[in-house]
Simulated scan of single mutants.
Amino acid sequence: MSREDFVYKAKLAEQAERYDEMVEHMKSVAKLKEELTVEERNLLSVAYKNVIGARRASWRIISSIEQKEENKADKPEKLPKIKEYREMVEKELKDICDDILNVIEEYLLKGDSVSGESKVFYKKM
């Protein structure tokens, strides 16, 4: 697929609120090792922020449930299952963060042609 195809598919994924797919399309653009346009940088950022945001919301809910269970007097058998689930979400969060950091370091910040504006944008991400 061409760069334009990846960007178009990322926009479609955004409209359909399928952010995991949006991430994959924008990673494909980043791996072309050419500087991203302002629009492409924004699409990459939106994709990762939404993927991370959904997992963070899940983590907060699960953590709240875990705290409620911990405060119960009878300490139910459900607590280990809740903890295991929370840890799974935490691993997903870590993996997603590692992924974007790798994309930024390996593809987007490499090379002398990266503009100062782009560098600042990626460092802020």
Rank of each mutant, 00 (worst) to 15 (best):
M1R: 15
R3T: 08
E4D: 04
E4C: 03
V7E: 03
V7F: 05
K9I: 12
K9G: 11
K11F: 04
K11R: 02
A13E: 05
A13R: 01
E14V: 02
Q15E: 10
Q15D: 10
A16S: 14
E17L: 09
R18Y: 13
R18C: 13
Y19S: 00
D20W: 10
D20Q: 09
D20Y: 12
D20A: 06
E21D: 09
E21V: 05
E21C: 07
V23W: 01
V23N: 03
K27N: 09
S28N: 13
S28D: 14
A30G: 00
A30Q: 00
K31T: 04
L32Y: 15
K33C: 12
K33W: 12
E34K: 12
E34Y: 07
E35I: 00
T37E: 05
T37F: 01
V38W: 01
E39M: 00
E39F: 00
E39N: 01
E39T: 04
E40Y: 00
E40S: 01
R41G: 03
N42T: 07
L43D: 00
L43T: 00
L44I: 05
L44R: 06
V46F: 02
V46E: 00
Y48I: 02
K49G: 01
K49M: 00
A54C: 14
I61M: 13
I62V: 13
I62H: 10
I62W: 12
I62R: 11
S63M: 09
I65V: 10
I65M: 06
I65W: 06
E66I: 07
E69A: 05
K72C: 02
A73I: 03
K75A: 11
P76K: 04
E77C: 11
E77D: 12
K78G: 11
L79S: 04
L79M: 06
K81C: 13
I82Y: 14
R86V: 05
V89D: 11
C97E: 14
D98I: 08
I100F: 03
L101F: 15
N102Q: 09
I104V: 08
E105N: 09
E105M: 11
E106A: 07
Y107G: 02
L108H: 13
L109E: 04
L109C: 02
K110L: 09
G111L: 04
S113K: 11
S113C: 12
V114F: 11
S115C: 12
G116E: 14
E117K: 12
K119H: 13
V120Q: 06
F121I: 04
Y122N: 07
